[in-house]
């Protein structure tokens, strides 16, 4: 029986979809059977980040309204056999789905997968309620900015009212030098404000944008900072205890020389 995890944030643009795609990829790399559900109906993105847009035939609304079987709507990933996507509809809106509809769907998927990751839309309205309905656990994504921490706090308050395990936190887009200079909230501040367990941090990395642009989740790359962060998160989800990645940047003399010469 699989576990359904909703990935949410309240605020938009903090990296829910990217996080969903990458945690899914990282779990698939560990040979887990993973299904990603995009519940951002009307504004679907997850398929784009995974590079699966061209393969979509049916979507979640087709399944809920009985126009096709659930199996027919699932899109198999081009890299892994064990990673599937249930895409959102682009032409409907969020009010056409009910929380019960999503819950039924997730329950139907659970026996076939180890993990079901539900990508939640921004906001706290109908779309959020739909996404949370089927989940057993929640991951809250925030960035080290005050506005997104405020919204994460709000979302955690709402999640506490649901029948879920206490949510876990992922802090996205960390910039070491800005945290050091006090222009960004630091990790400890955020964790102590939100008082939830930290699942992982993800360094701000151009490779994430580059990878999304090409439809290849960054977690697939072997050695970029962000991909290591995502893979660490997936290992923590699997129950391993992995220490947080050190934020310190390389300080070797060659790096400095390269920097001076504009090579890095």
């Amino acid at each position: 029986m699989g576990e359904a995890i909703v990935i949410t944030s309240g605020k938009g643009g903090v990296g829910k979809t990217t996080t969903t795609a990458n945690i899914g990829t990282a779990l698939a790399l560990q040979d887990k059977k993973v299904c990603l559900i995009d519940t951002d109906i009307g504004l679907r993105n997850l398929d784009v980040i995974l590079g699966l847009e061209n393969r979509i035939i049916f979507d979640i609304i087709d399944v809920i309204e009985g126009r096709c079987k659930l199996q027919a709507a699932l899109v198999k990933d081009k890299r892994f056999d064990c990673l599937h996507l249930l895409p959102a509809a682009q032409s409907s809106d969020k009010n056409e789905v009910t929380p019960e509809g999503i819950k039924e769907l997730v329950d139907e998927l659970k026996p076939d997968y180890d993990y079901i990751l539900i990508d939640c839309p921004a906001g706290i309205e109908q779309g959020y309620k739909n996404a949370v309905a089927g989940a057993d656990k929640a991951i809250v994504v925030t960035t080290p900015e005050k506005s997104s921490v405020r919204d994460a706090d709000r979302i955690i308050g709402l999640l506490e009212q649901e029948d879920l395990e206490p949510p876990h936190l992922v802090i996205n887009r960390i910039r070491k030098h800005m945290m050091d200079s006090g222009d960004m909230l630091d990790v400890d501040d955020i964790v102590s404000t939100l008082s939830v367990e930290l699942l992982g941090v993800i360094m701000d990395d151009e490779d994430v944008i580059r990878a999304s642009h090409h439809g290849n989740p960054v977690a697939f790359q072997p050695d970029t900072k962000a991909s290591i962060c995502y893979r660490n998160i997936s290992r923590r989800i699997l129950g391993e205890s992995v220490p947080l990645m050190s934020f310190d940047e390389d300080k070797g003399i060659m790096v400095k020389v390269k920097k001076l010469l504009g090579m890095k």
Binding site: R150, R154, I156, L158, S195
Partner: peptide, 11 residues
């Protein structure tokens, strides 16, 4: 009246 909880944004 005691409350054992974090009162969060919006509450």
């Amino acid at each position: 009246k005691p409350f054992v909880k974090t009162v969060r944004s919006g509450q």
